[in-house]
Structures are given as C-alpha cells and as structure tokens.
Design a protein around this nucleic acid. Structure first.
Lengths: 100, 100
DNA sequence: ATTATTGATGCAAATATATGAATATATATT
DNA sequence: AATATATATTCATATATTTGCATCAATAAT
C-alpha cells in the first residue's frame, strides 16, 4: 500500500487502529485473543488486574476502532479479534524491537 | 511471542514503538522511508507540508523509540528506518482495516 | 568573519487520553 | 417482583500529546 501519497483518509484510519492498539493493556488484550480466543469482560479484567470499568473502556476503544468484535451471550459479552492478522502487528513490533 | 503473560517491560516497549508510529504524519514518514529510502528533515517537512520544527519533533519521537536512525552528512541529516520490517506494520493495518 | 542554510530544542497553549468511582442497563435467578 | 451478576456509561481528574513560534547550534558558503 502507498502511504507516501498522503491520503489523509487512509492515514487517519490506519492511525486510529494503531492508536487503539498502542496501549499496554490493549496490547495485552489483543495478545489474549490471539488464535480466535473469545473472552468475557470479567475474564479480561481479572487477568489484567484492573477495574471492570477501565477494562470496558479499553474494550470499547478496540471495538470502536475495528480491532475487536463482540457477541453477547446471556449475561456475558464475549470479545474477540475482528481479524486474525491483528496479532501480526505484535509479531512485527517484536521482530523490529529486539535487535539494535 | 507471548503477550498474554503481562510482562510489563515487554508491553511497555511494544507500546512505545506502536505509539511512536501511531500518528498520521509519522505513519506517512515511515511510508516515505520504505525500502531503505533516506530523506533529510527538509525533504520530509516539505512533503508533509508541516513546519520544520514539528517535523523535527516527529522525527525525534520516531528515533527515540527505535523506529528510525539518522546520519548526519554536512548540513543535512538523513533519516531512515532502523529495521526494514517496520513497514510490515502498515501492511498489516491495511490488511486488517479494509475488510469489515 | 559574516551570512545563509539545516536541523534541534525550550516553551506554552490546545487538545486528547487514561483512570476509576458512581451509576445505569440488561439479563438471569430465586 | 426482588435480587444478583455482568457489562456499559457518565463524569471528573490526572496525565500525555501535539503544534508551532522563537531561538539555539552546527555546518557551509562568501
């Protein structure tokens, strides 16, 4: 893809997705959901060790920006990656980050 | 890599790199530098159409977080990707973003 | 030595983001 | 219907980011 043409619309979209992921708790969430895993808000907030409302905020951001989808099942809402390739971003960062 | 273990140090590093890239002008910069291209601050600020000092700030952020390197040559300072795979992040975002 | 060019930095104002307490909503259970 | 559980939302506060003017520093050209 050509990001050198300064297509503002495309840049904005890419930025919003990257910004959505670019937070330690949200990277951890994307990591949890790798491989098609589906988790509830409670499961995620317990694993992260942060408040339920904070967790819900983070999940809302990820869903809003198109990183996650959710599906309600009774009292629970399951969150999962909208596209499996999202964890590729983490792999990429990992590869790039570890060799100076 | 395992982001599900909540390794704070690793999460922080990944977050800082992602945050460095997660800005429209900085995504554009990374795009310009794809394929080993080296550009001066002036060239970049003219292409982006933003102030020189703002451009320098953005380049500083990208360099600081390990995304870019720079090399001075006379009056000019050339910036380039520290690791070629960084543009893979843009490809990944692109792939993930365009299919709802 | 003076001037011009290139890039970096200090600073302040505007804007955006993160967090969690309190509360609302939705569903399930009794 | 009343209560319990799961999730979302509102709101305020704290913190971080973005931007560009003004200025400084380094090198080059005259």
């Amino acid at each position: 893809m050509n990001y050198s043409e300064l297509n503002i619309e495309k840049l904005t979209l890419a930025t919003e997705m990257l910004k959505a992921i670019a937070h330690p708790m949200r990277i951890a969430i994307v990591g949890y959901l790798d491989g098609g895993v589906k988790l509830t808000v409670t499961e995620i907030h317990e694993r992260l060790g942060i408040e339920q409302s904070t967790t819900s905020h983070h999940l809302g951001i990820l869903k809003n920006k198109g990183v996650l989808s959710s599906k309600r099942d009774g009292k629970n809402t399951y969150y999962f990656l909208k596209h499996p390739a999202f964890t590729g971003i983490l792999d990429c960062i990992e590869n790039c980050g570890c060799q100076d």
